[in-house]
Write a protein that binds this DNA or RNA. Structure first.
Lengths: 187, 187
DNA sequence: TTGCTCCTCACGTCACGTGAGGTGGC
DNA sequence: TTGCTCCTCACGTCACGTGAGGTGGC
């Protein structure tokens, strides 16, 4: 019961799989939100799929802005007298909630990248960036990956083509470079 | 200089206009992020358009996930030697950042509503909701306004028509009610 | 005069983050 | 043996929130 069973994982492993910090998981445990399935002989916390699933629920609700106290309330077994089982409609709404979380996460990562770019003194300086290579280098220093750059230009071009062009010209890029980037953004 | 000038506003007024809590504004002041333009004879803080603009910048960056310390760093006047003035490209990116903030806010409000709906015991109960009137009443108790309901069904129908239909049936609505809601969602 | 807003501390809260000091497993 | 992960306190941090006790303006 308290020895490592097949499929059991330790705190660090669960943290990695769930994408949460170890300190968060310990915090949830302190609040009574997430208990290990058991302990190893050496006292290590051991978790199973059940806990991972529960953690995913916690994340969904936390991402939706609920307080941990409210989540604990939601996930606690219903009081006596309430009908048992889950309504099928619950699954659908939870799926939708997850979708919203993912979309928010996508937008937030764009925000973070943009903010980092804006925070760069070289970018805020009044003089233009220069050419395409200098611009790529700056994006890279701001933490943009190759895929981020591509995605970012593609979104900009798709949503505001005129502003995208104006922006590239304002950077000091030559007309041929501007066209090249825009063509590549539309592919 | 410290008397109420035309266009000056007090703490509460600025809080309302900016959509932030008064305590947040006081906190920003304690950090040196936002200083009043002056004080009234009675000691009231007085703010002008300059401060409102600065606050909007703070919000944009905060919404993008920057810490207040990082924002203070960004908004502080550049060190000696740096070229003065703003690059025109900065404006464009800040506008984009604002757009992203607004979109995130829209999604987050949907999340909050959904989470509140999911938290309702009546909704989680295994027995179906019943008819259209009961469903509307439940949405209303979850904090949905008339516009929220409309928006929510419209999004659901537009993005996942099949799931929307399945969901409405799972609520226990009659086929005619399901069709009515879907038609109304597509208008 | 009533009711609302403002003031200044100071302490509370929420969701973690960060060591310090020590033990366990490939 | 080395390096990594784990353990348990306990205290720190970030961004506010919440009074307490008092003054100001229509």
């Amino acid at each position: 019961m308290s020895r490592p069973t097949h499929g059991m994982m330790t705190l660090g492993r669960l943290a990695k799989l769930s994408g949460l910090a170890r300190s968060s998981l310990l915090h949830y445990e302190a609040l009574g939100l997430l208990k290990p399935a058991g302990r190893s002989a050496a006292g290590y916390r051991l978790y199973g799929e059940t806990q991972l699933e529960r953690l995913r629920s916690i994340r969904r609700y936390r991402d939706a802005g609920l307080s941990l106290a409210a989540i604990a309330e939601m996930l606690s077994p219903r009081k006596a007298g309430a009908s048992r089982g889950r309504a099928p409609s619950v699954e659908l709404l939870e799926a939708r909630l997850l979708e919203l979380s993912n979309e928010v996460e996508r937008l937030r990562s764009q925000q973070r990248l943009l903010a980092r770019l804006l925070a760069m003194p070289e970018f805020r300086a009044a003089r233009p960036v220069g050419d395409k290579a200098a611009w790529s280098a700056m994006l890279s220093r701001a933490g943009f990956s190759e895929a981020d750059m591509r995605q970012w230009h593609a979104d900009f071009e798709a949503e505001h083509p005129k502003e995208h062009a104006a922006f590239l010209r304002a950077l000091g890029l030559a007309a041929t470079e501007v066209s090249a980037i825009r063509r590549w953004s539309r592919q």
